[in-house]
Design a protein around this nucleic acid. Structure first.
Lengths: 238, 238
DNA sequence: ACGAAAAACTTGGCATGCCATAATATTTAT
DNA sequence: ATAAATATTATGGCATGCCAAGTTTTTCGT
């Protein structure tokens, strides 16, 4: 076992988590401003904290050039993400907490549950691989498998696939979807694409419980789809 | 709804909780030193914090004379105690966490669960009145009923009753008891009392699953018993 | 392609919450 | 009445945040 836990506050964990997700969006080192925006802090505060995280060995910080997690930092991030997603599923599954509220609750619980409790929850849920929003849960060994997905707004007319995932961060969206009975795991087919960045007409479900919805805007960007094998991922086209 | 939550940190909640339990032990205002001891802090730190709690309107502080909770302070304490005991029961019941570990876990969770989650847990457990150690759980309206009990070491030969409660704070004790299959709810009868503050010989359970144990020391003081109606509570005797 | 304006980042000074130690004040007990 | 016990008040430290001032990098207009 490595020497863990030297000064692991909620703040430190939140920084690691935020850096981790920003990092996995772009491969580039993470810049101060987007990080501050994501954490809801001022760039000044973030700059100061990055110095501390550097001293703690959790990040590599080239001043003015951005920041990358070290192996240690990545461990911290993955551990917290595992906590978060297990908790979301647990709250939804075992306590019937509504879909759109589990995120806020997990956001604070993730920093305080013990390894013991983490294990009990994971066991109770049968060591699950996905949380209620379709986000993959890192394994106990902190391995994370991100399935390949496309945002819904990149599909074209005739495309079919499975709606597998949606960001957990916006309760409004989640409430909107669940009010319409749309949740990850459902099949979907694109019937029509309005041009000019307009909405898509999408059919959800199969058989009798089929429903059609026009989906566009930020929502169509947040919903992610696993495309049917018949269709190849698209490169540059126009 | 009253104006809640002005500066309610874990530290503030812990102080209220500690003052509450010390207060209910003795009716006297709570002194700084015992409070510091209970919280594991230095008296100096406690003194400073008491000033803040006074300004927050949670306590009445007569310098050098001790401290009492205000109505607001009592609410804070009871809310946290409700969280704590609900969590203990939930962890034990729904997640099969061992008896002697639920306390430590609840100690940190109690400060971060939302009202929503509190309600879901209470509902799931059927609005219980006692936690796994036999401590009464304050109602949603924050009423607390402490049943009358006697510490085991005050019983006399021939006394019978029900073992109803034991402090949750000492995992060693809890492990000791559960290893021997003794838990709150069991009937007991005192077969013999050794004089000079020695142990009692006690029979637990009835019928075939009956077991005898010699119990003394701090353990006999921590285990609390509901005496059979036939026996009157004892006043001054010798 | 160069220099100035804009954007991005860091630094410094300050605040708050909470704890510690050491020095001081008050109460109590002999 | 004084020593011992108890409580309080400095003073300082650490983590974390803010704002304002200063630095570095990027962008853009010519």
């Amino acid at each position: 076992m490595a020497t863990r836990d030297t000064t692991r506050s909620p703040a430190v964990e939140d920084y690691c988590k935020a850096i981790f997700t920003l990092e996995s969006r772009s491969e580039e080192p993470v810049a101060t401003n987007p990080l501050a925006a994501r954490l809801g802090l001022t760039p000044g505060s973030v700059s100061a904290m990055l110095k501390r995280l550097g001293e703690l060995g959790l990040i590599e910080h080239l001043p003015y050039r951005g920041v990358r997690l070290t192996a240690d930092g990545r461990m911290v991030a993955l551990e917290v993400i595992r906590h978060h997603r297990l908790l979301e599923l647990f709250l939804a599954e075992s306590l019937e907490m509504p879909w759109d509220r589990v995120h806020a609750e997990a956001e604070v619980l993730e920093h305080v549950i013990s390894e013991d409790l983490e294990q009990l929850i994971a066991a109770k849920l049968g060591d699950p691989s996905f949380d209620p929003h379709g986000d993959p849960i890192p394994s106990a060994e902190l391995e994370l498998h991100e399935p390949e997905t496309l945002p819904l707004d990149r599909l074209q007319q005739g495309d079919g696939g499975v709606f597998v995932r949606v960001s957990d961060a916006d309760p409004e969206m989640l409430r909107y979807l669940s009010e319409r009975g749309i949740s990850p795991g459902e099949r979907l087919a694109v019937l029509e694409c309005q041009p000019f960045g307009g909405p898509l007409l999408v059919a959800f479900g199969d058989g009798e419980r089929r429903s059609k919805h026009a989906i566009g805007g930020r929502l169509a960007g947040a919903m992610r789809v696993q495309l049917d094998a018949s269709r190849l991922p698209r490169g540059a086209s126009a």
